[in-house]
Computed example of a mutant assay.
Amino acid sequence: MSLFLHKLLHWEYWPYQLVYVPVYFQWAWYSFRARSLFFFNASNPSIKNGGFFMESKKSIYDLIPQQYYPKTELINACASMNIIRQKIEKSGIQFPLIVKPDMGQRGTAVKKINTLEELLKYAGKGEFDFLIQDLIPYENEVGIFYVRYPDEAQGHITGIVSKEFLIVTGDGISTLEDLLRKDPRYAIQIPKLKREMGKRLAEVLPQGEKRNVVPYGNHVRGSKFLDASHLVTPEITKVINDICIQIPGFYFGRLDVMYDNWLDFEKGENFSIVEVNGAASEPTHMYDPKHSIFFGWKELMRHLRFMFEISVINNKKGAPYLSHKAGLKEYRDFVEHNKKFARF
């Protein structure tokens, strides 16, 4: 099957503008009721624009109790080599580490960095503020969608997605590129991986050796998303709720979490938050290949309803919606900011 046909037959690869067509009509109705296209600003009052766009990841991390996420440092776009070195030394962050834009977009420019030289090259390539972060030592990752209405002490989990990383297994003969071509999901990533890895794609893995080619659970970067909503239990709900009520002004969004094993996670042990996403969060369990586009539409519209209802309640409590003028400016800034990722 050609990659084009594979994408055509699997709606998870369709352009989001197409996937979201029914949602636009629901958004228009909610905007009319709220008298603002940008009502989402009130969904998470402590996060810029509710976490819909132009929010700083570092600002969100600063809201989260520190024991729940890895050591993280902000590097300004104009930082010198010496400042970067000093930040690493002072923070105690060790190589290999993760780098990501402070204001990111769908996993773009998120990378695992192994050496100071690679980090300096990354810094020279980008024109944006970015974060350096300890590599989380756990192998498993889930995205947990959390919703809590203001004044309610208990929130609830509306879906869980588990993530299969882009992992290949060597046969002693095939190159990394050959192994990637055996799976259409992985083959789609080859052009980007060629830019990142170059000649390393010609490496031949020994028989049985596994290689995690993209060590972060991002759908755009080749991870397979599986609906794990059956894992919602009172125990895991309590763990997530206990965390989220400690995040000021956070009511709606997705927590991406890495963990060692599920039993420990349900006890609140051996896990770390990768990041917290706000109003722009998708219920990513919908991207499980077993689900139809109709299931995706149902989930998108269900979660938009949650966000609207939370925003209305917070607005009545004094959290403002964005004005039309301010919202359009933020959107234009968002479009311009994303152009900075062209090299990635």
Results as ranks from 00 to 15, higher is better:
residue 156 H to G: 02
residue 78 C to I: 13
residue 139 E to Y: 00
residue 44 N to H: 03
residue 318 G to M: 13
residue 334 F to Y: 14
residue 154 Q to G: 04
residue 84 I to V: 12
residue 252 F to V: 06
residue 342 A to H: 11
residue 339 K to A: 04
residue 334 F to P: 00
residue 24 Y to K: 12
residue 196 E to I: 15
residue 334 F to R: 07
residue 74 L to S: 04
residue 158 T to E: 09
residue 23 V to K: 07
residue 316 K to W: 01
residue 280 A to N: 11
residue 291 H to I: 02
residue 277 N to S: 15
residue 21 V to A: 06
residue 49 N to S: 08
residue 86 Q to P: 00
residue 322 L to G: 08
residue 318 G to N: 11
residue 306 F to I: 15
residue 56 S to Q: 06
residue 243 I to M: 12
residue 264 D to H: 14
residue 338 N to H: 09
residue 336 E to F: 03
residue 5 L to G: 05
residue 227 D to V: 00
residue 258 M to P: 07
residue 259 Y to N: 07
residue 228 A to K: 09
residue 324 H to Y: 12
residue 90 K to N: 03
residue 304 L to K: 08
residue 42 A to K: 04
residue 11 W to P: 06
residue 172 G to C: 03
residue 140 N to G: 10
residue 78 C to K: 12
residue 210 K to C: 14
residue 11 W to D: 05
residue 167 I to K: 15
residue 332 R to M: 13
residue 106 R to K: 10
residue 285 H to V: 07
residue 273 I to N: 09
residue 111 K to A: 14
residue 307 M to E: 10
residue 81 M to K: 15
residue 41 N to P: 04
residue 146 Y to R: 09
residue 240 I to S: 11
residue 340 K to H: 14
residue 153 A to I: 08
residue 257 V to D: 02
residue 252 F to H: 08
residue 324 H to M: 10
residue 9 L to S: 08
residue 212 N to G: 10
residue 54 M to P: 11
residue 127 E to I: 02
residue 339 K to R: 10
residue 216 Y to M: 05
residue 130 F to P: 06
residue 84 I to N: 00
residue 119 L to Q: 05
residue 282 E to P: 10
residue 116 L to Y: 11
residue 245 I to Q: 15
residue 16 Y to L: 13
residue 293 I to R: 07
residue 294 F to I: 13
residue 225 F to V: 15
residue 323 S to Q: 00
residue 77 A to C: 12
residue 75 I to Y: 02
residue 314 N to F: 03
residue 238 K to P: 13
residue 266 E to P: 03
residue 44 N to D: 02
residue 65 P to A: 03
residue 75 I to K: 01
residue 218 N to T: 14
residue 300 L to I: 15
residue 116 L to Q: 07
residue 24 Y to V: 11
residue 224 K to V: 15
residue 297 W to K: 06
residue 252 F to I: 04
residue 165 F to Y: 14
residue 50 G to T: 04
residue 106 R to F: 05
residue 296 G to F: 11
residue 11 W to K: 05
residue 73 E to D: 01
residue 335 V to G: 03
residue 221 R to Y: 08
residue 241 N to A: 09
residue 77 A to S: 13
residue 43 S to N: 04
residue 153 A to Y: 05
residue 242 D to N: 12
residue 137 P to V: 00
residue 102 D to H: 11
residue 58 K to S: 07
residue 72 T to K: 00
residue 190 I to C: 09
residue 339 K to S: 07
residue 34 A to L: 06
residue 303 H to S: 09
residue 222 G to Q: 07
residue 12 E to C: 11
residue 238 K to L: 14
residue 19 V to C: 14
